[in-house]
């Protein structure tokens, strides 16, 4: 799909409109178990201002130097990020197993083209859970493909263990892999999971020269069951919309008492008025 004509405000209406627009692309790469996730972020720099560009089409390609595969296209979101996921089995690799990725924005009459590249070798991290001597053990293995396409260990790397949370990843430990690409961690207690105690656990190799970002993911019910905050439960507090019962009763009793007396006084006045009518014939 073609990019819509860019009728951006930045062109005509801001002070820095005079400055030429400069497109910038950043490409982030993440290899998860069976796929690679690419995220390209497109920003427009104009003078001192930086804006994310939304709805721009970014084309992703992968190459091994000889052949180039078009992985697909994606549109940037509100934050200027275009996301694409692609099965790692279909990637073209060179003799070292490396893949070169490229994200490309072809540009249009208002915004110049931009591209970014990144290269990495696909790898895999797997997570296994076991209970040994009543200890909860998380085991992690990291593998890569050799020339024959067999899985072989990634030795001596550091793997970080995270739990995804609402705003960010909570790091719960670090594992140093041994020669066989394996490492273990005693799983910490008192990590809050969902209401059933389920936890998503993520193991990551980060910013590796060769592998880039690699992550594996698994789910286990070792979490503490999440207790929802029960703000709905107190329904008759001072601060809730509905008042405590005693307060309503006290108020009603007092009001009823007072107004009943008022009514009585008014009734007496009415009676006084009536009496005068009755008396009238006498005068």
């Amino acid at each position: 799909m073609a990019i819509q004509p860019l009728n951006s405000f930045a062109e005509e209406k801001t002070d820095s409109a005079a400055a030429p627009a400069e497109s910038r692309m950043a490409l982030n790469y993440l290899c998860s178990t069976d796929s690679v996730n690419l995220s390209a972020t497109l920003t427009i720099k104009r003078g001192d201002m930086t804006l994310a560009l939304e709805n721009a089409v970014v084309e992703f390609t992968a190459s091994n130097g000889t052949t180039t595969t078009i992985l697909g296209t994606a549109k940037t979101n509100q934050e200027g990020s275009a996301l694409l996921s692609f099965p790692s089995a279909l990637l073209p690799t060179d003799k070292d197993g490396m893949v070169s990725y490229m994200a490309k924005f072809t540009g249009n009459d208002k915004y110049p083209a931009a591209e970014a590249t990144s290269s990495a070798k696909p790898a895999k991290i797997r997570l296994f859970f076991s209970i040994e001597d009543s200890l909860r053990i998380l085991k992690v293995t990291a593998t890569q493909k050799n020339e024959k396409g067999e899985d072989v260990a990634i030795p001596k790397e550091t793997v970080l263990i995270y739990i995804p949370r609402l705003f960010s990843l909570l790091k719960i430990g670090e594992i140093s892999l041994d020669e066989t690409g394996t490492g273990t961690l005693e799983f910490p207690k008192e990590i809050v999971g969902d209401t059933l105690g389920n936890l998503v656990v993520i193991a990551k190799i980060e910013e590796h020269d060769k592998f880039g970002f690699v992550q594996g993911k698994n789910v286990i019910n070792w979490g503490v069951h999440k207790q929802y905050y029960k703000a709905e439960v107190p329904s008759r507090e001072l601060w809730t919309p509905i008042a405590p019962l005693w307060m309503i009763i006290t108020l009603l009793v007092m009001l009823a008492g007072v107004w009943a007396h008022y009514m009585y006084a008014v009734y007496e006045l009415v009676m006084i008025k009536r009496l005068s009518k009755k008396d009238k014939p006498l005068f």
Partner: peptide, 15 residues
């Protein structure tokens, strides 16, 4: 209110 000070009116008024 047509008050003329009859005993009953007085009584009611006082009450």
């Amino acid at each position: 209110l047509g008050y003329t000070g009859t005993p009953e009116q007085q009584q009611r008024l006082n009450r």
